[in-house]
Design a protein around this nucleic acid. Structure first.
Ligand SMILES: [Mn+2]
Ligand SMILES: [Mn+2]
Ligand SMILES: [Zn+2]
Ligand SMILES: [Zn+2]
Lengths: 138, 138
DNA sequence: CAATGAATGCACTTCCATTGCATTGATTTT
DNA sequence: AAAATCAATGCAATGGAAGTGCATTCATTG
């Protein structure tokens, strides 16, 4: 059982107070978050610092971006089953049209997609939209 | 064989010179286009007019937007096999990492995607990235 | 303690989408 | 045909978000 500090250092990420806070914030969220979400959670922190913090996390492979079609970049920690470091991170994402939240369905892999002759598939982004489990009253 | 004028009118779109030009531009393009692409093609026209022209086309169901993950909205005419008016337009899109162009693969339908219990799927956006047929030297 | 390099904060820029409003243009009504 | 009406257009401005430059602060180390 590593501490967060040890984990970050193992990923070659220097530990700072801000980075610890942002990491914990991401870890306790079960949904993807926007930069504004983080900004609102830490009103005293500068937006640029937060921006560069998640960017560092992304560069070091512990956070991945999600483009869910809302036009706003979402972020989430890479967790069990999320292989972002491998070029093709093939888990799918679900965007709720009701509450507006987007979640990683890490355990749901994207099926093989056929493309026409001459096309070479390197990566796939798949976003399912609909009603999430919380909003469907389940 | 309808004329373009008749087609637009059948879709409840008032015919103007600008709309005819933009429609023809979209029709002769075999790839998706950005607003800037249209702007460059009609240097004399105002950006806002072009923006509202494609928006009108979209509202009337003859154009659909594509979010290919580049952060810039793409547009394409709805053609044979494209059922945008139906809530679930399920054809896939291909973005070429080499030439940067995005195409509708209208004939390639998106397979049924399983989501966990409690989630309700209403729509799917699937973008495949890789090398297109022109760039792969096929 | 001095020196070095990274992290942070502030200001600024860029890019694209979107809107307000006045004007132009077309269509309908009298 | 003239007047009235409504939509389309052009110009200016706004808004939202990503990204950058640079000076300052902070932490590490020799
Ligand atoms: Mn994810
Ligand atoms: Mn399409
Ligand atoms: Zn929901
Ligand atoms: Zn290409």
């Amino acid at each position: 059982m590593k501490t967060i500090e040890q984990f970050l250092e193992s990923k070659d990420i220097r530990v700072t107070a801000m980075r610890l806070l942002v990491y914990k914030f991401l870890a306790e969220k079960e949904v993807t978050v926007t930069l504004s979400d983080i900004e609102n959670a830490f009103a005293k922190a500068d937006r640029t610092t937060l921006y560069r913090t998640v960017k560092t996390f992304e560069d070091k492979g512990i956070v991945h971006q999600i483009d869910d079609g809302t036009g706003i970049t979402k972020y989430a920690l890479c967790e069990k089953g999320c292989n972002c470091e491998i070029e093709t991170d093939l888990h799918l994402h679900f965007h709720c049209n009701n509450c507006g939240e987007t979640v990683c369905l890490t355990e749901h892999k994207i099926p093989q997609i056929k493309v026409p002759d001459g096309f070479v598939s390197e990566n796939v982004n798949l976003v399912v939209k609909g009603i999430c489990d919380k909003c469907s009253g389940q």
